[in-house]
């Protein structure tokens, strides 16, 4: 599969994301020891997004609610850690950080529904200053993640998210 960065100027250098589909993404998540999902202010961009957060939480993915997304996770009773996206990313660059629960640092950060600039810069920080793998399941190809969905129409994106959850058994 080939993909180009949604915003062409986000291409930062020679190390680029591998484009993946829902099936591949599910395998990455299953292989991770401590996957976490960061969501942000764009969680209200489509009414179904919070549903996917809930399903991924049920699949054992820890939820990090950035910006004011904690409001929406709380309303749905989804357990989540609250942190600014830059705060969470900063913690992930610390090799000695023991995670929000004190049991270990996430080894995979899944991201969607965050402001695109912030999403991209999050991937850039983690690519350069951590060993944490990153997976973008946003509708735009995020070239600086380790893995990313390609650019998708809204309809195709929601279908991919649905398939991803199904592959994870939720």
């Amino acid at each position: 599969m080939r993909a180009t960065s949604w915003r062409l100027t986000m291409e930062a250098g020679p190390t680029k994301a591998k484009p993946v589909n829902a099936d591949f993404a599910a395998r990455i998540i299953k292989q991770a020891s401590r996957p976490a999902l960061a969501i942000g202010a764009r969680i209200t961009e489509h009414e179904r997004l919070i549903e996917f957060v809930e399903r991924l939480s049920r699949a054992g993915v820890a939820i990090i609610a950035t910006a004011h997304a904690i409001r929406y996770t709380s309303e749905r009773g989804i357990p989540a850690y609250k942190a600014g996206v830059v705060e969470a990313t900063h913690l992930l660059t610390d090799p000695d950080w023991e995670g929000f629960d004190g049991k270990g640092k996430p080894d995979l950060l899944i991201v969607f529904a965050i402001n695109l600039d912030l999403e991209n810069q999050t991937f850039q920080t983690l690519k350069n200053f951590s060993d944490v793998k990153t997976l973008s399941i946003d509708r735009y190809f995020m070239v600086n993640a380790t893995y990313s969905f390609p650019n998708l129409t809204e309809e195709a994106w929601l279908a991919q998210l649905d398939e991803l959850c199904q592959k994870l058994g939720v």
Binding site: G13, P14, T15, V86, T89, H90, Q124, T125, N128, F129
Partner: peptide, 11 residues
């Protein structure tokens, strides 16, 4: 206050 970096370009 530790500097937190997020490069816009890797080069």
């Amino acid at each position: 206050y530790e500097p937190f970096y997020s490069p816009t370009c890797d080069m």
